[in-house]
């Protein structure tokens, strides 16, 4: 989801810094490519003022929660898939994970958000939410495995957070969730996330604690004068002439 104000802010940044390429990504982001390194702190300062945070394109963390239109505007939508996607993103952005995490929420089994090949993919149905995990659509192609079906959005978020926290605590660096799942098995994960409510709550509490520290826009600290100087060339010798 976006708004005219956000699009205007992006367009203004593109014009102001003469950015050569603007692309729409598969993860429903807008990519600005070809920015000069010395312009980066200023670009992010402007984007930050418009409410954007950094990380969705490159983080070893949550990338994006792709969503379909959902019950707001689609005749087949069973739940508010866009709303759920936004709430998950707002809660989980900025968390550090062993490898990138891509999620999606589809409002019905037609699966317009392609949730069935994501690290965490939620399919909404009339009676609730089907949580799938361990999908892949990169060098490997793999369908999600069914973690659980829950009745409420709150439970869907709880399971998603608990699953990601378990992944953060156990997986080897650079293993996407599907690789980690192949090593530990879905049953092992289910026992700790679905079947043990106390453990699930503890996982969520630890994720919460971590976010209190780490949910921070990395560029917010770098929009300073000193940081901007560091991104510029150290010296320019092109005008120098030998004596």
């Amino acid at each position: 989801m976006t708004s005219s104000a956000e699009l205007r802010a992006i367009a203004d940044v593109v014009d102001k810094f003469d950015i050569p390429a603007v692309k729409v990504t598969g993860g429903q982001r807008i990519d600005m490519l070809g920015i000069r390194k010395q312009d980066l702190p200023a670009v992010w300062a402007d984007l930050g003022k418009a409410g954007f945070v950094s990380g969705q394109a490159y983080a070893k963390g949550l990338r994006t929660v792709k969503t379909c239109v959902g019950s707001d505007w689609c005749r087949f939508g069973t739940q508010d898939s866009t709303g759920l996607g936004i709430r998950i993103e707002k809660f989980m952005w900025g968390s550090w994970t062993p490898a990138k995490v891509k999620m999606a929420v589809s409002g019905c089994p037609r699966n317009c958000a392609e949730a069935t090949c994501k690290d965490v993919g939620i399919i909404c149905v009339d009676s609730g939410y089907e949580i799938g995990v361990g999908g892949a659509a990169g060098m490997d192609l793999k369908e999600v495995e069914r973690l659980a079906k829950v009745a409420t959005e709150g439970e869907a978020i709880d399971l998603t957070v608990a699953f990601v926290q378990l992944y953060r605590e156990h997986a080897r660096y650079l293993d996407r969730p599907y690789r980690w799942l192949a090593k530990v098995g879905l049953d092992w994960v289910r026992a700790r996330v679905v079947e043990d409510p106390e453990n699930r709550a503890a996982l969520i509490a630890r994720f919460d604690l971590s976010q209190g520290v780490y949910q921070r826009d990395p560029w917010a600290d770098r929009a300073t004068r000193q940081a901007q100087a560091d991104f510029a060339p150290l010296a320019d010798l092109t005008k120098e002439v030998a004596e």
């Binding site: 060339p233 150290l234 092109t238």
Partner: peptide, 25 residues
């Protein structure tokens, strides 16, 4: 002929900065 191009502390440790020259960076 040695040219002073900046302070050591202008470069982060385990990092680099760029000097522009007529032949490229």
């Amino acid at each position: 002929s040695w040219l002073d191009i900046g302070a050591l502390d202008n470069i982060p440790r385990r990092g680099a900065r760029v000097v522009k020259t007529v032949h490229g960076c």
